[in-house]
């Protein structure tokens, strides 16, 4: 139960930061920038060793936001580098995030085949 509450709190806080960035910089920062920014910053914080402690503490509150996806890419790369060296730097990230990326693309394609935008 406690883990759900922490996820709610921290995940919500991640979203507040995104909302503030968009509202206070209007119109410079768009939702597209938020997606790119979160994955990038998540990956950087992960490389600096700052993101893992947040994940330990908040669980899905840190892994479900897109910054968690950046974290997953970086951690996959670091692990693969330790095992395979240079080749791991290129393969590790995508291997770790493969399920999510493939799911998004395949589901997205199927949705486009099945549904019409209704507006």
């Amino acid at each position: 139960m406690n883990s759900l509450f922490m996820a709610f709190l921290v995940g919500g806080a991640f979203c507040i930061i995104g909302q503030l960035i968009m509202d206070l910089t209007k119109p410079a920062i768009t939702p597209g920038h938020i997606l790119v920014g979160y994955i990038t910053i998540g990956a950087i914080l992960s490389g600096l060793g700052i993101y893992q402690p947040i994940v330990d503490f908040a669980g899905a509150g840190a892994t479900v936001p897109l910054s968690g996806f950046g974290h997953l890419l970086t951690q996959g790369t670091i692990t693969a580098v330790q095992q395979k060296g240079l080749l791991g730097a290129l393969s590790g990230g995508v291997e770790a995030a493969a399920a999510g990326i493939t799911a998004a693309i395949v589901f997205g394609y199927l949705a486009a085949v099945l549904f019409n935008p209704r507006g």
């Binding site: 968009m22 209007k26 119109p27 768009t30 939702p31 935008p117 209704r118 507006g119």
Partner: peptide, 20 residues
């Protein structure tokens, strides 16, 4: 036409964005 203009000038129709 709302939907032809929206897709040419703005974001995809089904994307969840807040309108200013």
């Amino acid at each position: 036409h709302h939907y032809t203009a929206e897709r040419q000038f703005r974001t995809p129709i089904e994307q969840g964005v807040q309108k200013s």
